[in-house]
Design a binder for these strands. Structure first.
Lengths: 188, 188
DNA sequence: AACTAATCAGTGGTAACAAA
DNA sequence: TTTGTTACCACTGATTAGTT
């Protein structure tokens, strides 16, 4: 069943210059050699001019049967396919890189997180040590009460350490000790 | 120019059951109503059975002229192209999310980085203060050497702090000296 | 058989450019 | 200016090859 193909302007019949139908009425796909020849040109010039296309047809005996319009269409479709494929693979590679980057960042984050808590711990430990050690010193050495006072610019509470004031009785000794401390807030 | 369209098994001619060629030989696209009807079915069932397709043709007067095979092909193409589009947009949204995640992670990383250097700085400062203050203190008060001892659970070296032990001879003086230290953590 | 993936070609819409 | 040609692109219908 079935024959009869729409022909635009075929002179007689045998010359097979039709759309995707052969003279026999069969849907035609380009042969591997034809595609190869077309691909070769496409590789170096994806958008050949009309002249270049005609030249291609002349140069390539495999393509001599093909309508110039078909060549044009082939390049159009080829560009379209290429565009889709390129976009897809581009997105995929970007995705992979982003995922890898993400993983690294999360690991680095973890590492930093641990480092922070470690440092916070050490910090707290040091403060406490300082605190308790000095308090112990004082109480053991003098038996005098110690009043903690807040420093300007420092939050009160257990996490901050203020200097302490000593009852009048031991001030003299403290003064002689001099030296003493200034605290810089280690701005970054 | 041209008529004659490939007909699969049309009885006579006028009944227009052809592929994408009209009886007049023109390439035919489905009308908006036809597409709408097809889309409606596709929305609830992208892969209708042959029976469902026949039923669709019977139900829908707009599609009565269409070859069942065309309906089948329409669904095939629809699925294929939908798949491509979905994949593309999926990749794009994944990309966006990954980028956003990346940005957040980098910001968090920055924040942690700063926090770490801040803490390291504070830590170092505290150690040095502790060290120099007490050394100075002791040397001024007694002239006696100070031995640093390592604390259990803390790493040795310049980055870690131990409590200090003072030689027996100057304990009393050190204790009496008091005065002293405040530590500013400047929390973030 | 129907399905998927790839392919070829037609249509509509748009932009560039030259002739009327 | 308008009109016509030309090429391009996005979309779409249909066909084939290969798979399930």
């Amino acid at each position: 069943m079935a024959m009869a193909v729409a022909q635009h302007r075929v002179s007689s019949s045998g010359s097979s210059i039709n759309k995707h139908f052969d003279a026999a009425g069969k849907y035609v796909r380009y042969t591997a050699e034809q595609v190869e020849a077309l691909e070769r040109v496409y590789a170096e010039c994806p958008k050949p001019s009309s002249l270049r296309r005609q030249q291609l047809i002349r140069e390539c005996p495999i393509l001599s049967n093909v309508d110039p319009k078909q060549i044009k269409v082939w390049f159009q479709n080829r560009r379209c396919r290429d565009k889709q494929r390129k976009e897809s693979s581009r997105l995929q590679t970007v995705n992979k890189k982003l995922s890898a980057m993400n993983k690294l960042l999360m690991e680095e984050n973890d590492r930093l997180q641990k480092q922070v808590s470690q440092l916070v711990c050490e910090n707290g430990y040091m403060k406490q040590q300082l605190h308790t050690t000095l308090a112990e010193f004082l109480s053991k050495a003098t038996g005098t009460a110690v009043d903690w006072v807040q420093m300007p610019g420092m939050k009160p509470g257990p996490d901050s350490v203020g200097i302490f004031a000593i009852s009048q009785s031991c001030r003299g000794v403290a003064a002689r000790a001099c030296g003493l401390v200034s605290l810089e807030p280690t701005k970054v």
